[in-house]
Design a protein around this nucleic acid. Structure first.
Lengths: 262, 262
DNA sequence: ACCTGAACACCGTTCAAGT
DNA sequence: ACCTGAACACCGTTCAAGT
């Protein structure tokens, strides 16, 4: 799992350690009196850049996030974004972590009571994270990629781990358990969040019709060669993503419970 | 799981149903005798396009796959690739399925004996798929995205399902079980296959040193706020990706075994 | 210290022309 | 039926110049 570690110092592109200045509104109006239609100088902050990035991502998806569109929304030039992040990838890393702040807030109460069941608490956190990624499919690919610019990712990893700490396991088993949960949640959510085909997106074809059409093709396959596909065709046609995710998570957690001795 | 279904007919970009012509070598030399340095006309086939795509992907990664480089390797122009696929995405879909052929061959004997344990057989297939994705990280994102152009994806899904068919479960449970295994395998493998930082790739810093540097930063965190991170720091520093994957898979399979009643 | 925007290098895709 | 390659639209990134 390469993505789990903070990046070593030599990779970090060091900038002003104090970070960018606080936003000062929209900047003072420039030029002497009477100078016509002078564009005023825009002023940003990491906060506003990330907020606008997330908004654009929510509206247009990852493919719709580009520096020109983002600069337009921020009311400035493309170049200024590079003052706050050193690449599009880092922008996505930071945007992902930005959004994870809400997830962290949502799960803050979880695990507070020592009396609660650790595995149930683990499940609650996992489900919350899952929901967040389904809502924003781009999140999956950037979760915990670089813990140095993603403190919230690390805190969430820690939070999951703290529940497992209450189980009787070896450190190695605990590490594997949390990694497995994260892998399952992120992998499944990313898969489910994949762009449905154009016809569905545009509302031209409903999701149910889409699934039905897919299943019809499955049913047309040779039953002797594809017994399983035929066996689950009805289930697939009627399935709910969230149910499917939870069923898998419960399998994983049942195995964990067993390992922890009941 | 949008990606599980074949695409409905209306999305399919219908071409000659007989498919592209078989490769005819490198094409006849063109032009009348004596015409100097006339470039001969290249001739491809879906097979050769996919083989060259996979080769390029293996050498340069997904970021290195572009139409100009691919056309160069094929000895032709960019446009001709569009005779065989209608977009870069479809090229990746087909390339992924092309590679899955070997995975399918590798697991052909699995499950042949009714006497074998179905869960063990399921694990064997899962591990084989995992290894293939770790080797080619781009595979993960394109696995079972469009079963209409990915027959091998569907066959692999079927193969996993056939093992689960031997377990005493409801169709719904079987559907969920296979989906969970696929989600876990693909998600974990894709995560682990993520590009390590430049310094590691170039051999400038070894993987162990990289992990050690990451872990050092974890150890510098406040122990009261990050008890779990401290708890597993040693494990993380020494971990092996394949072990980690198998431990998680075994948790999932243990849960499945339990559900199947032993 | 921070912003601007033209310029560069590169890329997927199209299409009129060719064979 | 299949291939060619110039052209188009678009994109991340850089950087000299500005404030």
């Amino acid at each position: 799992m390469w993505s789990d570690g903070p990046v070593p110092p030599q990779r970090r592109d060091l900038r002003d350690p104090r970070g960018p200045a606080v936003a000062r509104g929209r900047g003072a109006r420039g030029g002497r009196a009477g100078a016509p239609r002078e564009r005023r100088r825009a002023s940003h902050s990491l906060e506003s850049v990330l907020a606008e990035t997330v908004a654009l991502l929510d509206e247009a998806g990852e493919a719709g996030l580009n520096f020109r569109a983002l600069a337009g929304r921020l009311g400035g030039g493309v170049g200024s974004i590079y003052w706050y992040v050193s690449s599009r990838d880092e922008l996505l890393d930071r945007a992902a972590d930005h959004v994870l702040g809400s997830v962290l807030d949502a799960v803050a109460p979880v695990g507070a009571s020592e009396a609660g069941d650790p595995v149930d608490d683990l499940r609650t956190i996992a489900v919350t994270l899952f929901d967040a990624i389904v809502d924003r499919p781009w999140l999956g690919a950037y979760f915990m990629r670089n813990t140095e610019v993603q403190p919230n990712s690390l805190r969430l990893f820690e939070k999951l781990g703290q529940q497992v700490l209450r189980l009787e396991l070896t450190p190695r088993q605990r590490f594997h358990a949390v990694s497995a949960v994260v892998g399952f949640v992120v992998g499944t959510a990313a898969d489910m969040g994949q762009q449905p085909p154009e016809a569905v997106l545009s509302g031209e074809v409903g999701r149910d019709d889409y699934l039905a059409a897919a299943v019809d093709q499955w049913r047309a396959l040779d039953a002797a060669q594809f017994p399983f596909v035929h066996h689950i065709a009805d289930e697939f046609a009627a399935h709910d993503d969230a149910d499917q995710f939870r069923a898998g998570l419960d399998l994983l957690l049942a195995g964990l419970r067993l390992q922890a001795g009941g």
